[in-house]
Design a protein around this nucleic acid. Structure first.
Lengths: 191, 191
DNA sequence: TCATCTGCAGGACAAACTGTCCGACATATC
DNA sequence: GATATGTCGGACAGTTTGTCCTGCAGATGA
């Protein structure tokens, strides 16, 4: 039950993902080989390739949650610059775990276990945002045209996909432009 | 070279997808069996499972493009009701081809060929929208805070993912609420 | 009527991968 | 020195993929 092996497997997997191979096309042999262990040993520590992915994903999703929390905390402050800055942190968090998060989105497409965990996560983000919006509405700082039920769903999935696709295809140089655009869109929620 | 076989395969595949099996977990045997042909015959008509998917996707993506075109055409009219109505048509188009479009998004995660075609499509939608926005800017009907380069990217991927996730998880009863929310978000682009 | 051609059925095949299992071995621990 | 732990290396059955080949049936043409 040495943690060392699990860490080596995690590291090797992230490295392989970083080289551009999609998680789906990664064989257990390949992973075990890169980690310097026997294939049979992999199954001692992980039930499955999905099991491995979910353990990799835990940290990444927590980091993402923290970044989003900071963004929401600033949301009401009204300071556009601070908001953009926090959105940049979200993009940074995504970029730091880009390969793993991409793999989660990838596997969630066909693996029920991963799909359940991933959707539950995003749903939790959305529910959090909804609570904030409901309080905003009580305070009267929200326009009447906004659907407090549907908006969190739209905002959450929009941010997720937009940032994911951006990180995959664009360089960090352009992160700020995306952060501004996203802040602008979310800001206009209050119009 | 009978078209009949290809149509039967297409129909069978869509039926199987409709039953909830992800495209990835669908075997060629299963498809051929459902279509009433021999497995070897499948390979006479399709190079690959991805080949089959791309042919299925062609129609779906064209329908989606048409619906989006109608939406953009109304975009400037300023009539909120008409805009929402056109967004509903987009959701309808997505719903009509929900299984195939979900499969495309799914397979694009790990299959380079499908990924290329899919991203090229979405990119084409985004470029179209960008041309419209640039004209709007020339006309001066757009706020200065909007980034005409990044906004189309954000809007296109946001609509794609939001509608996809909504169609997968919600009943048509709630389509109108989503259409209103999306219209609201895009409308605020002009603020 | 007979010969030919086309397209599909059906199955064999090698290659790859998955998850399980087992014996061998080295290293600690008592 | 005996025992327990964890890894190795390989065997194994089961599945899927893509290719190939034989045989058959129906259509086409002489």
């Amino acid at each position: 039950m040495s943690f060392e092996v699990e860490d080596r497997v995690a590291g090797a997997t992230e490295r392989l993902l970083g080289e551009g191979t999609p998680f789906t096309r990664l064989g257990v042999s390949e992973i075990a080989n890169a980690a310097g262990i026997a294939r049979s040993t992999f199954y001692v520590h992980f039930a499955d390739k999905s099991d491995l992915l979910l353990r990799l994903a835990a940290r990444a999703m927590d980091d993402l949650r923290d970044a989003l929390d900071r963004w929401w905390a600033r949301r009401r402050s009204g300071d556009d610059r601070a908001l953009t800055e926090c959105m940049l942190r979200v993009i940074d968090a995504y970029r730091a775990h880009a390969t793993v998060l991409a793999a989660v989105g990838e596997v969630a497409g066909y693996d029920p276990a991963v799909a359940t965990v991933w959707r539950a996560r995003v749903d939790r983000y959305a529910r959090r945002l909804r609570l904030e919006l409901e309080e905003d509405r009580r305070r009267g700082v929200i326009g009447a045209g906004l659907d407090v039920e549907v908006a969190p769903f739209v905002v959450t999935w929009s941010i997720e996909r937009t940032v994911a696709e951006h990180v995959r295809s664009s360089s960090p140089t352009e992160d700020r432009a995306l952060a501004r655009a996203l802040s602008h869109f979310c800001r206009s929620t209050y119009a």
